[in-house]
């Protein structure tokens, strides 16, 4: 059995770990709140741009007559190569967040029969796919828990460029939808070529004038739309990461407290045992002396 001193040392280190995880939990909670606010603030823009896009392509004949050169993002090609844009975290200690997203991505990739290329966001995703020998075209990182719109622009423009250059014929995004701090669901969605959203039924829309024409509007709108889709995914993933980290750190703190309690019990036992032993020795010594004197 460990000595009282050893147990005491162990207790102290577990207590310190508990303090750190508690601090991390609080940081994650504060950041999560901000991430949720940001997600809410970005929604009006995303909804509006979707609406504008559906107004521009309200007439399906517009889509049929597009030239591939002017509208590379709307171009449907025969799919030979599929790109996967995988969003995971930069840092660990977020429970199963990254591994769930990556598991989902691997399942999707292995179900895909075409050639696969990968673009990653977040260090964990990059490390994972590089180590396993996937064809990683590009890796973005450094913003997984606080994405700015500029980050989405960077990711979207890079993806758009590769798509236009036929680096892949279809792009799917794997990200994590935030439901609550306890529940996040990884999902996979197709984002390229851009599919204009269907118009909501029953909404009688006025026909719009375009300044300049539909074609020019569309060529500016399509990349912007892609940016908002990527941004929404980044924001959702960031909230999921923080939620997951908060829950993980919260249970780590609870576990540390429980461990300290158990250690305290064995510490007290060990301490009492050593006192009893010492007493025994003293009493035994005194008895022996007495017998020797007689």
């Amino acid at each position: 059995m460990a000595t009282a001193r050893e147990i005491h040392r162990h207790m102290k280190s577990v207590g310190n770990i508990g303090k750190i995880t508690k601090a991390m939990k609080m940081v994650a909670a504060a950041r999560l709140r901000r991430a949720q606010e940001r997600a809410a603030a970005s929604r009006p823009y995303a909804i509006k741009i979707k609406e504008v896009l559906s107004n521009v392509v309200s007439d399906p004949s517009i889509l049929a007559n597009l030239s591939a050169k002017e509208h590379p993002l709307l171009q449907h090609r025969e799919v030979k190569k599929v790109g996967y844009l995988v969003l995971a975290s930069d840092k660990g200690l977020a429970g199963a967040y990254s591994s769930n997203a990556l598991k989902m991505a691997v399942a999707e990739i292995s179900a895909c029969e075409d050639e696969v290329v990968v673009i990653t966001c977040g260090r964990k995703a990059r490390d994972f796919f590089q180590r396993r020998g996937y064809n990683v075209l590009e890796s973005h990182f450094g913003f997984s828990d606080r994405p700015a719109y500029d980050n989405a622009v960077e990711v979207a423009q890079d993806a758009a460029k590769r798509f236009a250059a036929e680096g892949f014929d279809e792009l799917r995004i794997v990200y994590t939808i935030f439901k609550s701090a306890l529940s996040q669901t990884p999902t996979c969605e197709k984002i390229l070529p851009v599919e204009p959203p269907a118009k909501e039924a029953g909404k009688a829309e006025a026909s719009f004038m375009f300044e300049p024409g539909e074609n020019e509007t569309l060529s500016v709108l399509a990349p912007k739309y892609l940016e908002t889709v990527v941004y929404a995914a980044l924001v959702q993933s960031a909230a999921s990461e923080l939620g997951s980290r908060m829950t993980a750190m919260s249970s780590a703190t609870d576990n540390a407290a429980k461990l300290v309690q158990n250690l305290e019990l064995s510490y007290n036992k060990a301490r009492q045992a050593s006192i009893t032993r010492e007493l025994n020795e003293i009493v035994g010594g005194v008895e022996a002396l007495k017998q020797a004197q007689q």
Partner: peptide, 19 residues
């Protein structure tokens, strides 16, 4: 200013989408 030039709109303008 739209991509083709300056313009201004007042109330009751026709529905328009300008870049």
């Amino acid at each position: 200013r739209s991509l083709v030039g300056g313009m201004g709109i007042k109330a009751n303008h026709l529905p328009i989408i300008a870049t």
